[in-house]
Simulated scan of single mutants.
Amino acid sequence: MDSDDEITAATIGDLKPYAVKVIVEDYNPEWPTWYSQGEAALRAALGTLALRIEHTGSTSVPGLAAKPIIDILLVIPDTADEATYIPALEAIGYTLRIREPDWYQHRCLIRRTELGAPWSVNLHVFSPEPGAPEIERILAFRDWLRTHDGDRTYYERIKRELAQQDWNFVQHYANAKSDVVEEILSRALRG
Rank of each mutant, 00 (worst) to 15 (best):
R190Q: 15
L162C: 08
R112D: 13
D2G: 12
G57A: 06
V180K: 09
L89F: 15
P118N: 14
I72L: 10
S120F: 02
M1Q: 10
P32V: 04
Q37S: 13
L89D: 12
H172N: 14
D151S: 04
E183I: 00
A132Y: 02
R152Q: 12
E161R: 13
D149G: 03
P32A: 09
L15Y: 05
S127R: 00
S120E: 03
N168C: 11
R97V: 11
N28P: 05
D5L: 11
R146D: 08
E90G: 01
I184Y: 08
R187D: 01
Y35F: 15
A66D: 12
G63V: 08
Y104K: 07
W167C: 02
R99N: 14
V75D: 04
V125P: 01
L89A: 08
I70T: 08
I7W: 04
D179V: 12
E161P: 00
S120G: 12
G47T: 08
D78I: 05
A45G: 10
A140E: 02
L51Y: 00
R112C: 02
P87I: 02
G57P: 00
L145F: 01
I86A: 15
A88H: 09
E134W: 13
R43F: 03
V125C: 09
K159H: 01
L64Q: 07
A50P: 06
T56K: 01
I158Q: 09
K16Q: 14
V181A: 06
